[in-house]
Simulated assay, not measured.
Amino acid sequence: MISTEEKRKVVMVVMTGNMLLDFSGPSDVFTHANNCLQNLQPGSGYEVLIAAPSADHKVTAATGVEIHCPYSVMEISTPIDTLIVCGNDFREGSVEAFEDFYKWLSKINAGNTRRIASVCGGAFTLAKAGLLDGKRVTTHWDLSERLKKEYPLVQVNSNHFFTNDGNIYTSAGVSSGIDLSLAMVEEDFGKDVAIRVARKLVFYLSRPGFQTQFGSLLPVYERENIGQKIQHWLIGHLHEPVDVNRLAGQMNMSTRNFTRVFHKETGIPPAKFIEKLRVETARKFLEDTDVPLERIAEKCGLGSLVSMRRIFLRHLMTTPSYYRRNFKTALKEAGMEDLLIPQATEKIDTI
Protein backbone atom coordinates (compact mmCIF):
# COMPACT_ATOMS: atom_id res chain seq x y z
CA MET A 1 0.00 0.00 0.00
CA ILE A 2 1.12 3.55 -0.73
CA SER A 3 1.34 5.66 2.37
CA THR A 4 -1.59 8.06 2.54
CA GLU A 5 0.69 10.59 4.25
CA GLU A 6 2.34 11.37 0.91
CA LYS A 7 -0.76 11.15 -1.26
CA ARG A 8 -2.42 14.16 -2.83
CA LYS A 9 -5.86 14.56 -1.26
CA VAL A 10 -8.58 14.54 -3.94
CA VAL A 11 -12.05 15.35 -2.58
CA MET A 12 -14.96 14.56 -4.89
CA VAL A 13 -18.30 16.10 -3.90
CA VAL A 14 -21.20 14.10 -5.36
CA MET A 15 -24.34 16.14 -5.97
CA THR A 16 -27.85 14.64 -5.98
CA GLY A 17 -29.69 13.98 -9.25
CA ASN A 18 -26.71 13.44 -11.51
CA MET A 19 -25.20 10.61 -13.53
CA LEU A 20 -22.99 8.08 -11.78
CA LEU A 21 -20.26 8.68 -14.36
CA ASP A 22 -19.92 12.28 -13.14
CA PHE A 23 -17.92 11.01 -10.17
CA SER A 24 -17.21 7.33 -10.90
CA GLY A 25 -15.24 8.15 -14.08
CA PRO A 26 -12.83 10.63 -12.44
CA SER A 27 -12.48 8.51 -9.29
CA ASP A 28 -11.48 5.51 -11.44
CA VAL A 29 -8.83 7.64 -13.16
CA PHE A 30 -7.18 8.60 -9.87
CA THR A 31 -7.52 5.08 -8.47
CA HIS A 32 -5.88 3.49 -11.53
CA ALA A 33 -3.17 6.15 -11.37
CA ASN A 34 -2.34 4.87 -7.89
CA ASN A 35 -1.95 1.35 -9.29
CA CYS A 36 0.44 2.57 -12.00
CA LEU A 37 2.44 4.66 -9.56
CA GLN A 38 3.13 1.73 -7.23
CA ASN A 39 5.82 0.58 -9.66
CA LEU A 40 6.76 3.82 -11.40
CA GLN A 41 6.88 6.27 -8.49
CA PRO A 42 6.52 4.37 -5.19
CA GLY A 43 5.26 6.46 -2.30
CA SER A 44 3.25 8.89 -4.43
CA GLY A 45 -0.33 8.94 -5.61
CA TYR A 46 -3.78 10.09 -4.57
CA GLU A 47 -6.04 9.78 -1.55
CA VAL A 48 -9.51 9.86 -3.09
CA LEU A 49 -12.33 10.90 -0.76
CA ILE A 50 -15.93 10.63 -1.98
CA ALA A 51 -18.09 13.11 -0.07
CA ALA A 52 -21.71 14.21 0.13
CA PRO A 53 -22.74 17.89 0.41
CA SER A 54 -25.07 16.95 3.29
CA ALA A 55 -24.53 15.87 6.88
CA ASP A 56 -26.34 12.54 6.39
CA HIS A 57 -23.76 11.33 3.83
CA LYS A 58 -26.55 10.36 1.40
CA VAL A 59 -26.85 11.20 -2.30
CA THR A 60 -29.39 9.91 -4.82
CA ALA A 61 -28.24 9.53 -8.43
CA ALA A 62 -30.42 10.22 -11.47
CA THR A 63 -30.89 6.45 -11.83
CA GLY A 64 -32.48 6.30 -8.37
CA VAL A 65 -29.45 4.58 -6.87
CA GLU A 66 -28.84 5.82 -3.34
CA ILE A 67 -25.19 6.41 -2.54
CA HIS A 68 -23.89 6.44 1.02
CA CYS A 69 -20.69 8.47 0.85
CA PRO A 70 -17.91 7.73 3.36
CA TYR A 71 -17.75 11.43 4.24
CA SER A 72 -19.78 14.57 4.51
CA VAL A 73 -17.65 17.24 2.83
CA MET A 74 -18.00 19.47 5.90
CA GLU A 75 -16.08 16.83 7.88
CA ILE A 76 -13.03 17.16 5.66
CA SER A 77 -10.40 19.60 6.80
CA THR A 78 -8.20 21.60 4.49
CA PRO A 79 -5.66 21.73 2.96
CA ILE A 80 -6.99 19.80 -0.04
CA ASP A 81 -4.94 19.20 -3.14
CA THR A 82 -7.84 18.89 -5.60
CA LEU A 83 -11.53 19.58 -4.97
CA ILE A 84 -13.91 18.32 -7.67
CA VAL A 85 -17.63 19.12 -7.55
CA CYS A 86 -19.44 16.48 -9.61
CA GLY A 87 -22.68 17.83 -11.04
CA ASN A 88 -25.16 20.27 -9.57
CA ASP A 89 -28.44 19.73 -7.74
CA PHE A 90 -30.92 21.73 -9.81
CA ARG A 91 -33.94 20.97 -7.62
CA GLU A 92 -35.82 23.94 -6.25
CA GLY A 93 -34.66 24.73 -2.73
CA SER A 94 -31.38 22.81 -3.03
CA VAL A 95 -29.27 25.89 -2.25
CA GLU A 96 -31.10 26.38 1.04
CA ALA A 97 -30.90 22.66 1.81
CA PHE A 98 -27.12 22.72 1.32
CA GLU A 99 -26.52 25.95 3.21
CA ASP A 100 -23.77 24.38 5.35
CA PHE A 101 -22.06 23.03 2.24
CA TYR A 102 -22.02 26.44 0.56
CA LYS A 103 -20.60 28.00 3.73
CA TRP A 104 -17.85 25.38 3.64
CA LEU A 105 -17.28 25.96 -0.08
CA SER A 106 -17.02 29.72 0.39
CA LYS A 107 -13.89 29.15 2.47
CA ILE A 108 -12.16 27.23 -0.31
CA ASN A 109 -9.44 29.26 -2.01
CA ALA A 110 -6.01 28.99 -3.62
CA GLY A 111 -4.42 29.17 -0.18
CA ASN A 112 -5.93 25.89 1.07
CA THR A 113 -6.78 24.08 -2.18
CA ARG A 114 -4.34 23.77 -5.10
CA ARG A 115 -7.02 22.94 -7.70
CA ILE A 116 -10.75 23.60 -7.67
CA ALA A 117 -12.68 21.74 -10.36
CA SER A 118 -16.12 20.80 -11.61
CA VAL A 119 -17.69 18.12 -13.76
CA CYS A 120 -20.67 18.97 -15.99
CA GLY A 121 -23.22 21.06 -14.03
CA GLY A 122 -20.78 21.37 -11.13
CA ALA A 123 -19.80 24.70 -12.68
CA PHE A 124 -23.10 26.10 -11.33
CA THR A 125 -22.10 25.06 -7.82
CA LEU A 126 -18.73 26.79 -8.08
CA ALA A 127 -20.35 29.85 -9.68
CA LYS A 128 -22.89 30.06 -6.85
CA ALA A 129 -20.00 30.19 -4.39
CA GLY A 130 -18.41 33.03 -6.39
CA LEU A 131 -15.40 30.96 -7.41
CA LEU A 132 -15.85 31.45 -11.17
CA ASP A 133 -16.24 35.23 -11.44
CA GLY A 134 -14.04 36.48 -14.27
CA LYS A 135 -12.86 32.94 -15.07
CA ARG A 136 -12.91 31.10 -18.41
CA VAL A 137 -14.96 27.94 -17.89
CA THR A 138 -16.91 25.24 -19.66
CA THR A 139 -19.90 23.08 -18.81
CA HIS A 140 -22.26 20.69 -20.57
CA TRP A 141 -23.23 22.11 -23.99
CA ASP A 142 -26.91 21.95 -23.02
CA LEU A 143 -26.30 24.08 -19.91
CA SER A 144 -23.94 26.71 -21.30
CA GLU A 145 -26.57 29.33 -22.17
CA ARG A 146 -28.18 28.94 -18.77
CA LEU A 147 -24.81 29.39 -17.04
CA LYS A 148 -24.15 32.56 -19.06
CA LYS A 149 -27.56 33.97 -18.16
CA GLU A 150 -27.46 33.16 -14.44
CA TYR A 151 -23.82 34.14 -13.90
CA PRO A 152 -22.90 36.93 -16.36
CA LEU A 153 -19.48 37.47 -14.73
CA VAL A 154 -18.42 33.96 -15.81
CA GLN A 155 -16.79 33.58 -19.25
CA VAL A 156 -18.45 30.45 -20.67
CA ASN A 157 -17.16 28.52 -23.68
CA SER A 158 -18.85 25.16 -24.24
CA ASN A 159 -16.64 24.06 -27.15
CA HIS A 160 -13.93 22.33 -25.13
CA PHE A 161 -14.10 19.08 -23.14
CA PHE A 162 -12.27 20.80 -20.28
CA THR A 163 -10.44 24.01 -19.54
CA ASN A 164 -8.50 25.69 -16.77
CA ASP A 165 -7.97 29.28 -15.72
CA GLY A 166 -5.50 29.67 -12.89
CA ASN A 167 -6.39 27.12 -10.22
CA ILE A 168 -9.94 26.70 -11.58
CA TYR A 169 -10.54 23.61 -13.74
CA THR A 170 -13.92 22.88 -15.36
CA SER A 171 -15.09 20.05 -17.58
CA ALA A 172 -18.01 19.71 -19.96
CA GLY A 173 -20.62 16.96 -20.13
CA VAL A 174 -20.39 13.78 -18.03
CA SER A 175 -17.59 11.70 -19.62
CA SER A 176 -15.41 14.80 -20.00
CA GLY A 177 -14.71 14.49 -16.28
CA ILE A 178 -12.48 11.60 -17.35
CA ASP A 179 -10.68 13.86 -19.85
CA LEU A 180 -10.08 16.42 -17.11
CA SER A 181 -8.87 13.85 -14.57
CA LEU A 182 -6.41 12.35 -17.06
CA ALA A 183 -5.07 15.84 -17.75
CA MET A 184 -4.60 16.33 -13.99
CA VAL A 185 -2.72 13.04 -13.69
CA GLU A 186 -0.47 14.08 -16.58
CA GLU A 187 0.10 17.45 -14.90
CA ASP A 188 1.03 15.76 -11.61
CA PHE A 189 2.99 12.67 -12.66
CA GLY A 190 3.78 12.99 -16.36
CA LYS A 191 2.47 11.75 -19.66
CA ASP A 192 3.67 8.16 -19.27
CA VAL A 193 1.51 7.58 -16.18
CA ALA A 194 -1.49 9.29 -17.78
CA ILE A 195 -1.17 7.15 -20.92
CA ARG A 196 -1.08 3.98 -18.84
CA VAL A 197 -4.27 5.00 -17.05
CA ALA A 198 -5.99 5.94 -20.33
CA ARG A 199 -5.08 2.57 -21.83
CA LYS A 200 -6.45 0.78 -18.78
CA LEU A 201 -9.75 2.62 -19.13
CA VAL A 202 -9.76 2.20 -22.95
CA PHE A 203 -10.01 5.96 -23.30
CA TYR A 204 -8.25 8.71 -25.23
CA LEU A 205 -5.53 10.56 -23.34
CA SER A 206 -6.47 13.57 -25.44
CA ARG A 207 -9.86 13.05 -27.02
CA PRO A 208 -10.11 14.40 -30.58
CA GLY A 209 -12.74 16.95 -31.50
CA PHE A 210 -14.86 19.40 -29.54
CA GLN A 211 -17.93 19.13 -27.35
CA THR A 212 -19.77 21.21 -29.96
CA GLN A 213 -19.90 18.13 -32.18
CA PHE A 214 -22.11 16.31 -29.66
CA GLY A 215 -24.72 18.99 -29.09
CA SER A 216 -27.69 19.96 -31.20
CA LEU A 217 -27.31 23.24 -33.07
CA LEU A 218 -31.01 24.00 -32.61
CA PRO A 219 -32.97 23.71 -29.35
CA VAL A 220 -36.27 21.86 -29.10
CA TYR A 221 -38.90 24.56 -29.42
CA GLU A 222 -42.37 24.35 -27.94
CA ARG A 223 -45.19 23.42 -30.31
CA GLU A 224 -46.52 26.97 -30.56
CA ASN A 225 -43.09 28.48 -31.24
CA ILE A 226 -42.75 29.80 -34.79
CA GLY A 227 -39.46 27.94 -35.15
CA GLN A 228 -41.18 24.61 -34.48
CA LYS A 229 -44.01 25.44 -36.87
CA ILE A 230 -41.79 26.38 -39.79
CA GLN A 231 -39.31 23.56 -39.20
CA HIS A 232 -41.78 20.83 -40.25
CA TRP A 233 -42.30 22.49 -43.63
CA LEU A 234 -38.70 23.52 -44.07
CA ILE A 235 -37.26 19.99 -43.65
CA GLY A 236 -39.02 18.90 -46.82
CA HIS A 237 -37.72 21.86 -48.82
CA LEU A 238 -34.07 22.14 -47.77
CA HIS A 239 -32.91 21.08 -51.23
CA GLU A 240 -34.69 24.12 -52.71
CA PRO A 241 -33.74 27.80 -52.58
CA VAL A 242 -35.33 29.12 -49.37
CA ASP A 243 -35.18 32.69 -48.14
CA VAL A 244 -37.00 34.78 -45.54
CA ASN A 245 -39.60 35.97 -48.08
CA ARG A 246 -40.62 32.40 -48.82
CA LEU A 247 -40.82 31.49 -45.14
CA ALA A 248 -42.93 34.56 -44.43
CA GLY A 249 -45.29 33.62 -47.23
CA GLN A 250 -45.60 30.09 -45.86
CA MET A 251 -46.71 31.57 -42.52
CA ASN A 252 -49.03 34.11 -44.20
CA MET A 253 -47.07 36.97 -42.68
CA SER A 254 -45.30 40.01 -44.07
CA THR A 255 -41.53 39.62 -44.35
CA ARG A 256 -40.90 42.38 -41.83
CA ASN A 257 -43.34 41.01 -39.24
CA PHE A 258 -42.16 37.43 -39.77
CA THR A 259 -38.52 38.42 -39.24
CA ARG A 260 -39.36 40.31 -36.06
CA VAL A 261 -41.50 37.53 -34.56
CA PHE A 262 -39.09 34.79 -35.61
CA HIS A 263 -36.07 36.44 -34.01
CA LYS A 264 -38.04 37.17 -30.84
CA GLU A 265 -39.29 33.58 -30.42
CA THR A 266 -36.19 31.67 -31.52
CA GLY A 267 -33.40 34.04 -30.57
CA ILE A 268 -31.76 33.83 -34.00
CA PRO A 269 -32.47 35.32 -37.45
CA PRO A 270 -34.24 33.14 -40.07
CA ALA A 271 -31.16 32.77 -42.29
CA LYS A 272 -29.08 31.41 -39.42
CA PHE A 273 -31.92 29.05 -38.45
CA ILE A 274 -32.07 27.67 -42.01
CA GLU A 275 -28.32 27.07 -42.12
CA LYS A 276 -28.30 25.29 -38.76
CA LEU A 277 -31.21 23.08 -39.82
CA ARG A 278 -29.36 22.19 -43.02
CA VAL A 279 -26.31 21.15 -40.97
CA GLU A 280 -28.45 19.16 -38.50
CA THR A 281 -30.09 17.27 -41.38
CA ALA A 282 -26.73 16.61 -43.02
CA ARG A 283 -25.46 15.22 -39.72
CA LYS A 284 -28.23 12.61 -39.72
CA PHE A 285 -27.28 11.53 -43.24
CA LEU A 286 -23.65 11.20 -42.19
CA GLU A 287 -24.53 9.23 -39.05
CA ASP A 288 -27.16 6.88 -40.47
CA THR A 289 -26.52 6.43 -44.20
CA ASP A 290 -23.78 5.82 -46.76
CA VAL A 291 -25.09 8.53 -49.10
CA PRO A 292 -22.10 10.23 -50.82
CA LEU A 293 -21.05 13.60 -49.43
CA GLU A 294 -21.84 15.41 -52.66
CA ARG A 295 -25.39 14.02 -52.62
CA ILE A 296 -25.86 15.02 -48.97
CA ALA A 297 -24.76 18.56 -49.75
CA GLU A 298 -27.32 18.66 -52.57
CA LYS A 299 -30.18 17.17 -50.51
CA CYS A 300 -29.59 19.59 -47.64
CA GLY A 301 -29.12 22.70 -49.74
CA LEU A 302 -25.52 23.17 -48.62
CA GLY A 303 -24.24 23.80 -52.12
CA SER A 304 -21.01 22.17 -53.22
CA LEU A 305 -18.82 19.85 -51.17
CA VAL A 306 -16.44 22.76 -50.58
CA SER A 307 -19.30 24.89 -49.29
CA MET A 308 -20.59 22.11 -46.99
CA ARG A 309 -17.08 21.61 -45.61
CA ARG A 310 -16.75 25.31 -44.83
CA ILE A 311 -20.15 25.43 -43.10
CA PHE A 312 -19.37 22.30 -41.03
CA LEU A 313 -16.10 23.81 -39.87
CA ARG A 314 -17.91 26.97 -38.80
CA HIS A 315 -20.64 25.20 -36.82
CA LEU A 316 -19.03 21.93 -35.67
CA MET A 317 -15.28 22.60 -35.96
CA THR A 318 -14.85 19.48 -38.08
CA THR A 319 -15.27 18.36 -41.68
CA PRO A 320 -18.15 16.19 -43.00
CA SER A 321 -15.82 13.27 -43.76
CA TYR A 322 -14.23 13.40 -40.29
CA TYR A 323 -17.66 13.68 -38.68
CA ARG A 324 -18.87 10.58 -40.56
CA ARG A 325 -15.84 8.56 -39.45
CA ASN A 326 -16.36 9.44 -35.80
CA PHE A 327 -20.15 9.56 -35.46
CA LYS A 328 -21.39 6.94 -37.90
CA THR A 329 -24.11 4.76 -36.37
CA ALA A 330 -22.36 2.37 -33.98
CA LEU A 331 -24.39 -0.67 -35.06
CA LYS A 332 -23.38 -0.21 -38.70
CA GLU A 333 -19.74 0.17 -37.74
CA ALA A 334 -19.98 -3.08 -35.76
CA GLY A 335 -21.59 -4.94 -38.66
CA MET A 336 -25.01 -5.11 -36.96
CA GLU A 337 -27.09 -3.19 -39.51
CA ASP A 338 -29.98 -5.64 -39.12
CA LEU A 339 -30.67 -4.21 -35.66
CA LEU A 340 -31.28 -0.72 -37.04
CA ILE A 341 -34.88 0.41 -37.30
CA PRO A 342 -35.72 0.36 -41.05
CA GLN A 343 -38.36 3.07 -40.75
CA ALA A 344 -35.81 5.55 -39.41
CA THR A 345 -33.46 5.01 -42.35
CA GLU A 346 -36.30 5.22 -44.86
CA LYS A 347 -37.54 8.47 -43.39
CA ILE A 348 -34.09 10.03 -43.63
CA ASP A 349 -33.61 8.87 -47.23
CA THR A 350 -36.82 10.55 -48.35
CA ILE A 351 -35.97 13.99 -47.01
Rank of each mutant, 00 (worst) to 15 (best):
T318D: 14
G17V: 08
I178F: 10
G87W: 09
E287I: 10
T255R: 15
K128E: 09
K191G: 03
A129S: 13
K284N: 13
T139K: 10
M184E: 03
L131W: 02
P70G: 08
T4V: 09
A344I: 05
P219C: 04
V48K: 10
R114L: 00
R207T: 08
Y204R: 00
G335M: 09
D338Q: 05
G17C: 02
E6P: 01
Y71T: 00
E5K: 11
V154E: 03
D288I: 00
G173Y: 05
M19Y: 13
R136I: 01
F23M: 05
S307G: 01
S158Y: 07
P292C: 12
G267Q: 05
E99L: 03
G43C: 05
A97F: 05
T4S: 10
P270G: 03
F258S: 12
A97T: 08
E275H: 12
D100L: 07
N252R: 06
F161H: 10
P241F: 10
E186N: 03
C36H: 13
G43N: 03
Q228P: 00
F124G: 07
V95E: 11
R199F: 04
L247S: 11
D22W: 07
P70M: 11
G17M: 01
L83R: 09
N225W: 10
S106T: 04
E150Y: 08
N167W: 03
R199T: 13
T318I: 15
A282N: 08
A334W: 14
V156F: 06
F210S: 07
A271E: 15
N326Q: 07
T259W: 01
A123S: 12
D22T: 04
T329I: 13
E145I: 00
N159Q: 14
V11Y: 07
L234D: 02
T31K: 06
M184W: 04
K229S: 03
F90P: 01
T170A: 00
R283S: 02
N326E: 13
A117W: 02
V85C: 07
K135I: 01
K7D: 09
I351A: 01
L105I: 06
I311Q: 09
V73P: 14
I296S: 06
H68N: 15
R325A: 11
S44T: 15
K149G: 01
A344H: 14
K299A: 13
S171Q: 00
S175G: 08
V73M: 11
R295L: 10
T345R: 15
I116W: 01
I80Q: 06
V11Q: 00
W141V: 14
